[in-house]
Computed example of a mutant assay.
Amino acid sequence: MCFLCNAGLLSIHNLESEVIKKNQNISSSNSEENNTNKELASIDIQHLTMSSQEINTRLNLASTERTLRLYISPGNESISENNENEANTPYSRTPEEWQYEYIRENIVKISSFINLKLKEVTNKKEADYILVIHPNPQKDSLSNNTLMVSHSSGAQSPFHLEENPDLVQHDSDSKATQKEIFLHELGHLLGLEHPWDKDDGDFAVNNWSDPHASTRMGYNEHLSGKVGWYEDIDISALQNIWGEAEVKSYSGNSYDYKFYNLGNSKFGIKHENGNSIDPLTGITLLKFDEQNLHKSSDIKGTFDQVTGLNTDSGKMFRLYNASFKRLPDPDGLRYWIGNFSSGKD
């Protein structure tokens, strides 16, 4: 379980409540002023990278397709939590449009930086990870395969502790802050840890309150709502895990192009009005006007299913291509090959 408040540490919201209770005269601004007088600890890639075992678990899930499948709970689904009393099992909240927006925007955006595709699926059983908007406050965490963000996260007092999510009020600042909280938890999903986590033997600071250089995985600027993305050190750590995305942009839509299997796991692309095939050497992500395609998951994942010209898979590949006038998507092609081979369709 990966929490903002790990190993008995208070969450930031909990900390705020405790400070208010113990001493109404002490403000968070004074605390920040005191920290500015201390030297910031530097953070290296290894300080933000989980143990090799945790990283390998994620790499194995992504497999050679370099894809992690994410399911966004549409609401009213039971949430599995460690040590949760079954009688009080919470149910996911239907994400609001702005929550759907920041989730989808960022799972697409991160794939422009790392050699990994985060794919949204609609079948929960197909998912590697489940993304949930939690109705209860202070539930921001990655627990097993469930990434949770509380609906009230980011909201100012008293709404960040409001037990009834329908009463929580969000403004532009609180929405921006909740987006940053999601990015923090997404970092955990992708293999990043807090710079004070010591289980893997390396750490930059002893605990979250020690002043340290800015990182989305730490305390500094985590709840500012001003940054809206990862710091450079976070991206470097992610690229150390997944590799760097090599991106090439193409004009027009993907269906304006034809794709070719050149053999030996090499592929090419040619515009429908072009004269030559452009080899996709060293490219991991292809950007078109209407969508992005990953070479490993979308292109290789499709061609790997075609076992021969006159096999069932070859016939369905040609039929799919002729019917939809585009490269088949791997899941769609797999579905139709299965149906055709079984005699269902």
Rank of each mutant, 00 (worst) to 15 (best):
R104A: 02
E105H: 12
S111Y: 00
Y100L: 05
E97N: 15
Y100R: 07
E126Y: 07
K117R: 12
A127I: 13
F113Y: 13
E126I: 06
T94W: 09
P135M: 11
W98S: 10
N136K: 15
Q99S: 10
V108H: 06
I103A: 04
K117Y: 03
K117E: 04
T94L: 14
K124C: 13
K125E: 11
Y102I: 03
L118A: 06
N123I: 09
D128Q: 12
K125F: 08
S112Y: 14
K124H: 11
V132Y: 01
I107H: 05
V121T: 14
K109V: 01
N136L: 15
V121F: 10
D128P: 13
F113P: 00
N106D: 10
I133S: 01
E120I: 10
R104S: 06
R104D: 04
L116D: 06
A127R: 12
Q99L: 10
I110V: 06
Y129C: 12
T122K: 08
H134N: 14
E120W: 06
R93K: 15
V121Q: 11
P95Y: 05
I114T: 00
K109N: 05
T122A: 05
Y100N: 04
L116T: 08
I114P: 00
Y102G: 02
N123V: 08
I133G: 01
A127D: 13
R93P: 00
K117H: 05
E101F: 09
E120R: 09
K119P: 06
K125R: 15
R104I: 03
S111W: 00
T94R: 15
T122Q: 07
N115T: 03
N136C: 09
I110P: 00
V108S: 06
V121N: 10
K117I: 02
V108R: 12
W98D: 11
Y129Q: 14
P95G: 03
K117M: 04
K125S: 14
V132Q: 02
I133Y: 02
I107R: 10
N106F: 09
Y102R: 05
K117A: 02
N136I: 09
E105R: 14
N123P: 03
V108L: 12
E97V: 15
R93N: 06
L131N: 01
I103K: 02
V132L: 02
Q99A: 10
I107D: 01
I130Q: 08
A127W: 13
E126S: 10
Y100V: 03
E126G: 03
E105W: 08
V132F: 01
N136A: 14
V121M: 15
I133D: 01
N106Y: 12
P95R: 07
E120S: 09
E126Q: 11
S111F: 00
F113K: 08
I110T: 01
V121E: 12
D128F: 14
E96M: 14
I114H: 01
F113D: 04
N106H: 13
I114S: 03
I114W: 03
R93T: 07
V108G: 05
